[in-house]
Structure formats: C-alpha cells, structure tokens
Design a protein around this nucleic acid. Structure first.
Lengths: 222, 222
DNA sequence: TAAAAATTTGAAAAAATAGTGAAAATAATT
DNA sequence: AATTATTTTCACTATTTTTTCAAATTTTTA
C-alpha cells in the first residue's frame, strides 16, 4: 500500500511516515500540492493524507485537480479553526478528516479503515428471517414485499444490522446515525424504533430493548 | 481510571489534575521520569501524560524504560521547537501528542479517546462454571439458559467479575456501580445481591459475603 | 448461652424508563 | 406557495426496576 503524505511541515511528514512504515505501508512525500500532483503522475498511490494550509498550492486546489484525473481516497488534516465553512463545503468527497494536532495512531486507524472500505467489496444484500435489505437500492422487503422506509429509518436499521447482538446505547446511535453534531433529544430514537418495529411486522422482535441502555438487534446465526 | 501525569512544572500538573478529577479519573503525579517509574511499580496506571523536557530523567528515557516493563498508552506533551527529530524518531508507540500550550479540554478529549480505544479490546465474553456473560449483548446465561437480568444487576455482576477474589466494601460497590453521586442506603446492595444470587442459581455461592465488609466473587482459576 | 451485630429475605412503596399517539417543526416536492 | 413527506418533540401511561424497611435468620462476641 502506498501512502502519499502532502504537508509543508517536515515534522508532520516525518511522524506520519514513521507510523506508516511501521505498518508496512510505503510512503511518498510532497511539501505542497504541485509536488503532490507530480508524484501522482509518476507513482501508484492508494491513499492520500492531505494538509490544507500549504504554500504554492493549497489542499483545496490539489484535491479538485486530483479528483479530475484520479479518484484516490483522501484524509484531510486541518488545523482547528481553519475556515470550517470552506472545508465543509469542499469536504464532499473527502473520506475523512482530522484536526491538528492529531493522534498518529488515530490516523493509522483511519487509513486502515478507509483502505479496508475501498479494497473490500461491501455486501449489498442482507437476508435474515423474512427481512431482506437491498443496501445499494435502499429498499426493505418483508416477506418479499417491498416496505416503504424513510432515510432515517433505513440508516438506523442498517446500523443495527451492522452491529448485531450488541446492546447499543442511545448516545451511540445518535452519534453514528445522526452524527456527532446532533444535539437533539434521546427519545427521538424511541419513536423511530417504534416505526421501524411496525415496519418489520412479524419480525418486530428482532429489535429488542435493552433497558437503561438502548436497543439491540438480534441475529441468530443458523 | 488512573492517570499518571509526569511534568516538572507544578502548574501544568495542577491544571491537568483539576480537569482529570473533574472527569472522575484518579490522578497520580511525578515531577520527572524517575519518580514516574517508581509510581508505575507501586500503582496501577491506565494512561500516562508525559512531558519531554524534565530534569533528572527526561521523557524519552522514561518512555523507553516504561515500554520495557509495561505497555501503557501515553500522550506526550512537547513544547514547540523541542528537538523534533528526536521526538519523532522515538515517537513509535506514543499514542498521541500535544504541543504546549495545549487546551486542557482537548487533552481530556484525547485521554478519553485513547482509553476508549484500549478498553475497546476488552473481552466480550466471560465463562466460569455454568455462568456465561455476553458483555456486548448484556446477557447472562446460566447453564446455557438465558436469564433475565436488570441493568443494575448486570452492572453489579460485571463489577464483581472484573474484581474477582477481592473483598469489596459496600461503599466501593456503591461508588463504582451506583456512581459517586449516589447517596442511598447501603442495604440496597444486599437486596441486589439477594436477587443476583437467586439468578445465579446453582452458582449462587460464587458471591460470598465478607462479614462487616461487603462481598466477594470467587473465581478459581483452572 | 444470651446479647449484640450483621446479613438475608419478602413485600411494598417509590422511582425510572420505555411504548405510544398525536401534534409540531422541518424538509422536500410539486 | 402549497402540499406532502419526514423527522422531532412531548405528554401520558404502563411497565419494569430500584429502593426502602422491618422481621427473620445467622454469625460473632462477651
């Protein structure tokens, strides 16, 4: 796996490099966007770690140009307070971002996660009892009949299916399905669960409540 | 959770301590690496916050020695401009770093993140005699039969299992399972123990009463 | 062995929590 | 701009869980 790290600070490059090498990744370095593009033309790159604030060519510009020619998963490093709006507007398409100073181990963990996502084909169908889910088409079938399901409900169900037999707290659910920046009421989940259960029909008991914690999706392996 | 903070500046230690205590972490302090190692020999430490520039024994030396004997997650505090090469040559193994001056809130957030990562690798199943516990799903099985268990009972049982063969006082139990802000009656525990014992069925004697102290979970290693 | 101290236990009161329906607020479509 | 769909809030109830308390039992002490 080849990791391209683009940052004008030697210090940052070194620390990322050190950790990447330790994981058995090959490392390529660039001090700015221009150098970065040059490397892309010459070398095979599997993942990019990209700083935003750089001389010569900044991260935004680099990213757009990279997207035109390649489609390489990218993790952005941004300093705290660094033009959040712009970052966010542009963030469509980035795969992850970390604020500086960041934890090296966290970066590695995220690199791994992204590589896994890109190399492993995600299953696009799930079947259990009479529950069938088409992830790609975002359709739910109960006993082979299509059931209308809203986006939130679908995401929620998906999250449960991805974490079977695990008691998941309301907070976790909120964080993962609604996003870390959501500050609404816990009990909203309950209402969604209610609806979801109704839509699951005969299989409503697959979602079990775990008192004082949250809920759990029961999946009994054959 | 025990946090060991190693820094020669009293001021820094105090600030970190203040915030840690506020989070319910226990704090241990050392003014240099030598003191730090001494504490490690005596106390259980879950995470280390380590300054680099210190008299007597600096952070690098401390870190290497610590790694030889223990493997405790470590966050490094470094002043900007502080021998970067050395810092990052050595950085393999540190879990995070912050440059001074740092935000205490950020430090706390990072401590939490790391602790989470480390405790995440905890086992999610416990088996002993006919007692089986699925921590992830929060389920108790006795002789392979699922037994209904309430949240408090589960937390209590979990606490016992995490501290086997240890006489635990009612006060300790109250603090850890009920939380430090609980001001109810001691005797409440007795009632929960009663119920727990009943649910443990044939293995009710695994919870032994330690007169005038509290209770103890017996776990005889094979 | 009797008195004192501590624990066990059962039953009932108190508190916490989740299920639910309906309405309000938001967002998406027409 | 109006309509429709989705999401969120909220209050009320039913249920479960937790706590309290006093009598019964056990253990320790004098």
């Amino acid at each position: 796996m080849n990791v391209l790290i683009i940052d004008d600070e030697l210090l940052i490059r070194d620390v990322v490099k050190e950790y990447c090498l330790n994981e058995g990744f090959k490392v390529l370095e660039a001090a700015n966007g221009i150098e970065g593009l040059e490397i892309l033309d010459k070398e095979k790159v599997d993942i990019i770690v990209l700083d935003i604030m750089m001389p010569k060519m900044d991260g935004y510009t680099f990213f757009s140009k990279m997207k035109e020619k390649y489609n390489i998963p990218t993790i952005v490093l941004s300093a705290r307070g660094e033009e959040y709006d712009k970052l966010f507007g542009f963030s469509i398409g980035i795969d992850d971002y970390l604020t500086k100073p960041f934890s090296p181990k966290e970066l590695i963990a995220r690199i791994k996660a992204i590589l896994k996502r890109f190399t492993k084909e995600e299953i696009d169908e799930f079947t259990y009892l009479g529950i069938k889910i088409d992830f790609k088409g975002r359709v739910l079938y109960i006993d082979n009949e299509e059931i209308q399901i809203t986006p939130k409900e679908f995401d929620l169900l998906k999250y449960f299916i991805e974490n079977p037999n695990t008691a998941i707290s309301r907070e976790q659910i909120l964080n993962k399905v609604w996003g870390y920046d959501y500050f609404g009421d816990d009990r909203t989940i309950d209402t969604h669960i209610k609806i979801l259960r109704n839509k699951l029909g005969p299989y409503r008991d697959s979602i079990v409540t775990v008192r004082s914690i949250g809920y759990k999706f029961i999946y009994e392996k054959a």
